[in-house]
Nucleic acid binder design. Structure first.
Lengths: 181, 181
DNA sequence: TTGCCTGCGGGACAATATGCCGCAGCCTTC
DNA sequence: GAAGGCTGCGGCATATTGTCCCGCAGGCAA
């Protein structure tokens, strides 16, 4: 049986190198693309079994790659990975056809687990995993900001206006990482 | 044209009453269920256009209602609502067929927006959907704090713990008056 | 082309807010 | 009465914001 072929779309130099190596060691064949165009070329020329897409590719998101991927490769499973996770983008990604969504930081095992994981039904079905703590205010703020920012197609100035906060402040908040939980 | 029929599954007495009224005033017909069994009875006896499900129903989740709903009512749009939002449950809900996922606190407009949202051709042109301003981050924070504080029967220390903020900070926030909007 | 407007990123500095300490008073429960 | 939890509040040392101010880039109209 031949090796499974994974498409890795990730613009972070270091992270992509680490991931590539980790996946290769686990006996996968990995093709890496650092941006949307490179990714499209690969998608059109190769059959992939899986895809790992970093949500934030420089300017825009990698969500646009989902459709071409699905079209060329109806059987591949797609995992969206992001350092700036939010419920809004997660919902959007899944709606667009991604199979899973994972927040960085995550190690290779975690990522592979999320990518291969097919026993979806059990994930949340058990009542114990039902996380009963309310969101922290920071987390809630982050989610809300992401939602509004998304509604404004990434326009920071407009988002700041609607949120009644200074653009400079929003800008600074966005540069930080999302809150753990 | 007859009114659109909404199924509201929500175990919180107060919240469900408020929502029911708000939706009724907006000219929807609302059926309310406080638990899974009640909901199933309604699903089997009525045709719904939309459904709003609180994710946490006492012990388990309301995700199990998605399948029956979809089966009986292939056209309905389903919104999952929860005070304990997390990316994991959001992804799960969308995978199971929910159309959107929203974190409380959320007002009726926000909820309806999330429910009707999306490229639904017939609702896009709706002139009534006049520009919904998102809550400011301060307002959202205030609402959330009040809600959690309430769940904890006014216990400031416990609330601060859950919100992962310093008790002193919470105390100071509470001394100020609520934000205008 | 030249303004002009808008968005983006970021420096600098003062005004606030927050984290964290400690203390005293009040309850309720052993 | 001692123990432990909650509340209100006074200080700081830090962190985060509000403001103002530039420079740069792209879209657009004169």
């Amino acid at each position: 049986m031949s090796k499974k072929h994974i498409l890795l779309v990730e613009d972070d130099e270091v992270f992509s190198r680490v991931m590539s190596r980790a996946l290769t060691h686990r006996d996968y064949e990995v093709s890496h693309a650092a941006n949307e165009d490179e990714a499209l070329v690969l998608i059109n020329s190769t059959q992939f079994d899986y895809a790992i897409l970093d949500l934030n590719l420089g300017g825009h998101t990698s969500l646009g790659l989902i459709a071409p991927l699905k079209q060329k490769n109806p059987v591949s499973r797609i995992l969206i990975l992001t350092g700036y996770a939010s419920i809004t983008t997660a919902v959007e990604a899944i709606k667009l056809g991604a199979d899973n969504y994972l927040a960085k930081p995550a190690d290779a095992d975690e990522i592979l687990g999320a990518l291969l994981d097919n026993n979806q039904p059990d994930t949340v079905a058990d009542p114990d995993s039902a996380h009963l703590e309310p969101m922290s205010v920071r987390r809630l703020e982050w989610e809300h900001i992401q939602k509004v920012l998304n509604e404004n197609d990434g326009n920071i100035s407009e988002t700041a206006r609607q949120l009644k906060m200074h653009r400079r402040t929003l800008q600074r908040k966005l540069q930080k990482r999302p809150v753990a939980k």
